[in-house]
């Protein structure tokens, strides 16, 4: 381990992971993408710290993270609504703060949403594994040691704070709710689902089950049947909606297996997997079919809105 200082983990919380934008180019050795479940919130955290958009940050699921700054830096927390405090004083999400060596940063448990992102100026500085810092616990890859954060971990970063603090005005912040419409491109084995089954799928409401994690979101509701049981194992893309034998859809997320043999009816747009990733057990979703052109439009519209939205200086 290189001698370094940065932020010391006092409490790791439920599940806190080092993430960058994800690992690409290692599918051929069986490594999945990892990366932030809510890419939008992750990028906002980096913008608020005036970082590159894929700078390495922490994804905090559910909450409970406490860090001590060992140097001067600037931090910002975005995403799920977790109460943030610095040295016991309540602070806002969606804005940056300068912190000094010795400051204690604490995140409570989310009241709305599941995952938040804590970025620091210049990002955390860690050696990459397979071209990325993204932690995938199942693979033991990324982060400090391929695991979730634990007490005593030191997350190195630059000893330099930003001169100005930035905020995303309240009216521009993403709002989290208990439901989401998942725009989905029909794809893969779509033709093996009868038009009746497809209509059922796209007109039914589903509930997020207790099995929701970084690999996938298992849903409960109208059973969907396919006229084939399985297929030759093939590449699975982000957002793919798998229909196993029990007919209950699973939306595959960042830590999914790279290949698999269950039929898939389509794939959810990345704009909407961001929203899905903020839902928890009992939340409602429904799927809405869109064409590939509409999916491209949705992606570009979202990206251009992100790029056009300016941050505001604050104290």
């Amino acid at each position: 381990m290189p001698l370094s200082i940065g932020f010391l983990v006092k409490q790791p919380g439920m599940l806190s992971l080092i993430q960058d934008a994800g690992r690409f180019g290692a599918f051929n050795i069986g490594l999945t993408n990892g990366g932030p479940i809510d890419l939008g919130a992750f990028r906002w955290a980096n913008r608020l710290c005036a970082n590159e958009l894929n700078a390495t940050a922490i994804e905090i699921s559910v909450g409970g993270l406490a860090l001590t700054a060992q140097l001067d830096s600037t931090i910002a927390v975005t995403g799920a609504n977790m109460p943030l405090s610095i040295n016991g004083q309540v602070k806002e999400l969606w804005r940056s703060y300068q912190v000094k060596a010795g400051d204690l940063i604490e995140l409570g448990f989310a009241t709305q949403g599941v995952r938040s992102y804590l970025a620091v100026a210049h990002g955390f500085m860690l050696p990459e594994s397979f071209g990325s810092n993204a932690t995938v616990c199942r693979e033991g890859v990324g982060g400090l040691t391929g695991e979730k954060l634990k007490v005593g971990d030191i997350l190195p970063c630059a000893n330099q704070s930003r001169t100005q603090n930035l905020t995303l005005l309240d009216r521009l912040r993403p709002k989290f709710s208990d439901e989401a419409v998942l725009h989905t491109v029909p794809s893969y084995q779509q033709q093996h689902f009868s038009s009746h089954q497809q209509r059922l799928f796209f007109s039914s409401e589903y509930t997020v089950s207790k099995s929701f994690d970084r690999m996938g979101y298992r849903l409960e509701g109208q059973k969907i049947s396919c006229d084939i049981d399985g297929i030759l194992s093939e590449g699975i893309c982000h957002g793919a909606v798998q229909i196993p034998a029990d007919g209950q859809p699973i939306v595959l997320m960042n830590d999914r297996q790279t290949i698999g043999g269950y039929p898939k009816i389509g794939a959810v747009s990345s704009v909407d997997t961001d929203k899905l990733g903020q839902l928890s057990q009992g939340c409602k979703v429904r799927f809405e079919p869109i064409s590939m052109e509409q999916a491209h439009n949705l992606f570009h519209l979202n990206l251009s809105r992100f790029n056009r939205t300016a941050l505001t200086l604050c104290d």
Partner: peptide, 22 residues
Amino acid sequence: VIDLIPSYASLMVMFNLTTTDH
């Protein structure tokens, strides 16, 4: 092209939506 997944009888091609389209 960002990444490829070869398998038994298929090849998945993942592309960069900020530079190209399907």
